[in-house]
């Protein structure tokens, strides 16, 4: 494997966003790119990352390899990179370590680190293609704000999408709270757009603790996409450049 990222910051942000959810995971490398899939310890949430080969230049992966990496170790090394550094990941065919090289485009500094790899026996889940009842695209910062606000009142949020809009509501010991967003197009500032595509109304309840955790990815993309269907996990997607993505799936809470 030899994969060169124009900005080390991208990988730094991705790992930073998921490191509190998952600890040890395999980075599966093949000629289409670098993928990661991992569940959190309680098996409620699933992280799925895809960094497509096109996100790197150049990208070369001659043989499929799984790099088992402890994310807190990876984060320690990524913190040694400046945000603007160029990052090159390298690994042999049957690697014991992954090699990270940081190059400054402005100076002649070159830093090199090796991280020891781990043997990780990870369950791989098949995620079915889903036609979602509701797909909401909104500013990532807005979603983060709503989750942070509502977690002050309750541990769960009900997300209800109708033709009127999308309503985030919660109830807790001190009282209730709700935030409703309607579809909104801002020609001047398209980054503030809220788009709700609905084939049928849907209402589901989720644990806010996980949603707040997912929102650590807000720095990766201006927009977040929420996809909901009855009785299936919520998909929270942050789209990255070159069709790469960071997706989170969260199992709903279902009342008896």
């Amino acid at each position: 494997l030899e994969a060169r990222l124009e900005q080390a910051n991208l990988l730094k942000k991705v790992v930073d966003a998921i490191k509190d959810l998952v600890q040890d995971c395999n980075f599966d490398c093949n000629d289409s790119g670098i993928a990661l899939q991992a569940m959190d310890n309680s098996h409620v949430a699933l992280v799925s990352m895809m960094l497509k080969a096109e996100s790197f230049s150049p990208f070369r992966c001659d043989r499929n390899i799984a790099l088992g990496i402890n994310l807190s170790s990876l984060m320690k090394v990524l913190r040694c990179a400046q945000n603007e550094d160029i990052l090159t990941l390298k690994a042999d065919d049957a690697p014991d370590v992954v090699n990270l090289v940081f190059e400054s485009s402005e100076s002649d500094r070159l830093s090199e680190y090796d991280i020891k790899l781990m043997d990780i026996d990870q369950e791989h889940l098949g995620i079915p293609e889903t036609e979602y009842s509701a797909t909401i695209s909104m500013p990532a910062a807005e979603f983060q704000r709503i989750c942070r606000d509502l977690i002050a009142l309750s541990e769960s949020v009900a997300i209800e999408a109708t033709k009127e809009g999308v309503k985030f509501s919660c109830s807790g010991d001190i009282g209730n709270g709700a935030v409703t967003l309607r579809s909104h197009t801002n020609v001047e500032k398209p980054e503030l757009n809220v788009d709700i595509a609905l084939s049928e109304p849907v209402a589901l309840t989720f644990s806010l603790k996980y949603l707040v955790n997912f929102c650590k990815a807000s720095g990766l993309s201006g927009t977040v996409k929420l996809c909901l269907s009855s009785e299936v996990p919520l998909l929270v997607e942050y789209t990255l450049a070159s069709n790469s993505y960071l997706r989170f799936y969260l199992a709903p809470k279902i009342g008896d």
Binding site: H43, V44, G126, P233, A251
Partner: peptide, 14 residues
Amino acid sequence: QSGQKSIKSFFQKR
């Protein structure tokens, strides 16, 4: 957590 589903009950093991 009452009513919290596991993600494994929705996605099949590959």
